[in-house]
């Protein structure tokens, strides 16, 4: 999975490309740690080029979401493809995450 982080003001904009699965999720989590552990962090994950999210990927998203609550930050997910949106809907993640 390709990860590109841009800072726009106080927002970390993360563009993702490829697949967020068992193989790629640990690296994704490691790379994001520096951002989601900051007090009041604002993160936008752009899923425009992301094709797949597995259970392992969902666990990382859940972790970042929990951190955003604990650290008074925010997590927004944008441009979600219909097949990933369906996974979010079926697993209950649509009620947990902010999806635009």
């Amino acid at each position: 999975m390709k990860i590109e982080v841009k800072q726009e003001g106080d927002i970390f904009m993360v563009e993702l490309e490829g697949r967020m699965d068992t193989n790629t999720s640990p690296d994704f989590q490691k790379e994001m740690e520096v951002y989601y552990t900051k007090q009041g962090f604002n993160m936008i994950l752009d899923f425009d080029k992301l094709d797949f999210v597995s259970s392992a990927g969902l666990r990382v998203l859940l972790l970042i979401q929990k951190k955003s609550k604990a650290l008074s930050g925010s997590l927004v997910i944008k441009n979600v493809k219909p097949e990933i949106q369906e996974v979010f809907d079926m697993t209950g993640f649509s009620d947990i995450l902010t999806i635009e």
Partner: peptide, 10 residues
């Protein structure tokens, strides 16, 4: 998929 049951517990 791997980690599905752990995700359910999370």
């Amino acid at each position: 998929q791997e980690e599905t049951y752990a995700l359910y517990r999370d």
